[in-house]
């Protein structure tokens, strides 16, 4: 619910502002760090690595425990997904896919926390430290921040080049860039098409994830603006639907990464 004395518009904009290292308000900031996204996503990543590391240390080939079972199911699932489309050495690609899947899943899962929970605690902490709680900004869903989704998709973008050069050689890659798919006589069209295709991949990867989760977060914020008795049904419904979105978006990001890398790796 909107805090007393704030208009809904103020409430929403307050919720959509990052805890930033500066006060740059441009669409693209060259100087400011989004500290909330960085810290929360890193903590989630560390949680993921710790849990899986515990399972890895305790891993036995005998009867697995519950944690090991869970981790093994995930690893088997990711390994099979990679095996299905990537035909090569999986020592890097499979762990990459697992990291993407679990990390993005955890990012998205932050959306299921009550929208006001962490911001309220954060504001209370600010007040306790003697700062103005009205300027305590924090956004808890890393995947609703373009910085995070673009960081992932640009990483994948760079890896696409690495795997292209590994699979086809630098010359082979540029030859394909210039002559594929229309043949050498239509070189300009090939270049335009391949240029668009290459750039579309990181853009679509990042924006798909960002768009879904940003929209999800926004709707949770809007539901939070309703009177308390009207929140239950839409809040529950959207949260249940969101469980699907969270998993699906993580899965899509992982699968597309695998597909892009396998396409880069193989000859046409």
């Amino acid at each position: 619910m909107a805090e007393a004395g704030h208009s809904p518009a103020e409430y929403v904009t307050h919720h959509l502002r990052h805890w930033s290292s500066g006060s740059d308000s441009g669409f693209i900031s060259l100087s400011d760090w989004h500290l909330d996204t960085l810290i929360i996503s890193t903590l989630l990543g560390i949680a993921f690595l710790t849990l899986f590391r515990i399972a890895a240390v305790r891993a036995t080939s005998g009867v697995p425990g519950k944690l090991q079972n869970f981790v093994e199911v995930l690893i088997d699932f990711v390994d099979n997904s990679v095996k299905d489309s990537f035909h090569g050495v999986r020592t890097f690609v499979a762990p990459l896919a697992l990291t993407i899947f679990v990390w993005v899943f955890l990012w998205n899962a932050m959306d299921l926390l009550p929208v006001d929970l962490i911001p309220k605690l954060w504001a209370a902490g600010h007040a306790a430290a003697g700062h103005d709680p009205a300027h305590a900004y924090i956004r808890v869903v890393p995947s609703a921040d373009m910085s995070a989704t673009f960081a992932l998709s640009i990483s994948v973008f760079l890896l696409i080049f690495v795997y292209s050069f590994k699979g086809k050689g630098v010359g082979g890659y540029f030859k394909e860039f210039l002559t594929h798919p229309f043949g050498p006589w239509l070189l300009p069209f090939n270049v335009i098409l391949n240029f668009v295709e290459t750039l579309a991949r990181p853009l679509s990867l990042a924006l798909r994830l960002f768009g879904n989760l940003y929209a999800g977060e926004l709707i949770f914020i809007l539901i939070a603006l309703l009177p308390w008795w009207a929140q239950v049904v839409p809040g529950l419904g959207w949260a249940l639907f969101h469980i699907l979105v969270i998993t699906l978006q993580a899965f899509i990001f992982m699968t597309l990464t695998i597909v892009y890398l396998s396409m880069a790796h193989e000859h046409h």
Binding site: L16, S20, G26, L30, W33, H34, L38, F150, A151, Y214
Partner: peptide, 12 residues
């Protein structure tokens, strides 16, 4: 809504 270049690099 803002994309922060330092954040992107750090996150990568």
């Amino acid at each position: 809504m803002q994309a922060s270049i330092p954040s992107i690099v750090g996150q990568m």
